[in-house]
């Protein structure tokens, strides 16, 4: 008990922390409030109270196709990242190849590289290879951005594993793949769920890479929000942003409840 008391931060630190969090979260609150305004322009505090902007967004084919596009990209890139990322992490963990450290750094590079740089580089590359404007190209770009999250969470989970467990399965008659599927995979699953969620969310709200690669006909939700804001703001942008915040928040909350996944971040 005395330990806990000694480790508790002082009121000064607590107050500072609260101020910082409030400052960071204030814009989010502003956007959410603005979505309920009856005016045709963004204003704070909101005038009146209406759900009309949500209705407008959910019946607007431009928004709907953008939402559909974003979900396809997020789901697709997360699935591909899971397969590739888990395979890569397993090989790195088992040190199948020499130079595992170098490969790890390479896989993690998109995480530390400025996203704009990745976007420009891919644009150049896609122009040369003819992938520009294609869904496949966009999907691959999102895989590049999301795969580090899966690799990192998979590596973290694997490092906590007793290697003998998989060997035990092998000696008991399981093939290499069976041992992985029946023993290793279930044991690292909570970590993979965390990685997949991060991957999903990262893909869902990516602008800086996506904006270089989309065609005029197919846009994603965050890029659409970005361009809508440029053309003049009405509360429908706030409404769709609120939906995005809500969806992300619910997913994170469920994951935390189910897996306590803060351990894997």
């Amino acid at each position: 008990m005395s330990d806990a008391a000694e480790n508790r931060p002082g009121w000064g630190l607590t107050a500072t922390a609260f101020t910082v969090v409030a400052f960071l979260q204030l814009p989010v609150i502003v956007v959410v409030l603005a979505a309920f305004s009856t005016t045709s322009y963004l204003t704070i505090p909101p005038q009146g109270l209406t759900l009309a902007w949500f209705g407008k967004v959910l019946s607007d084919p431009t928004y709907l196709s953008a939402i559909r596009m974003s979900l396809i990209l997020a789901c697709g890139s997360t699935l591909i990242s899971l397969v590739l990322g888990v395979a890569a992490a397993y090989a790195l963990f088992r040190k199948v190849l020499p130079g595992s450290e170098a490969v790890t750094s390479f896989l993690m590079a998109p995480l530390v590289m400025p996203a704009v740089v990745v976007g420009v580089a891919l644009l150049q590359f896609y122009s040369m290879t003819g992938l520009r404007g294609s869904l496949v190209g966009l999907l691959l770009a999102h895989v590049v951005i999301t795969v580090p999250y899966v690799v990192r969470s998979a590596l973290a989970s694997l490092s906590g594993l007793d290697l003998a467990v998989e060997e035990a399965a092998r000696v008991l008659g399981a093939s290499g793949f069976e041992a992985f599927r029946l023993v290793t995979l279930p044991l690292i699953a909570p970590g993979l769920v965390a990685g997949a969620l991060f991957s999903f969310i990262t893909s869902l709200d990516n602008v800086p890479v996506t904006i270089f690669l989309i065609s005029a006909s197919q846009t994603t939700l965050p890029v659409l929000i970005f361009s809508s804001v440029e053309m003049g703001i009405d509360p429908s942008v706030a409404a769709v942003s609120t939906l995005l915040i809500l969806a992300t928040g619910i997913v994170l909350l469920l994951a935390e409840r189910r897996f306590g996944f803060h351990r894997f971040v």
Partner: peptide, 20 residues
């Protein structure tokens, strides 16, 4: 032969039970 084709039993120091 790979381990799964040898028909052996192995008891590990760490027991290596499947925790799940």
């Amino acid at each position: 032969l790979p381990p799964n084709k040898r028909g052996l039993g192995l008891v590990f120091q760490s027991y290596a039970l499947f925790p799940h």
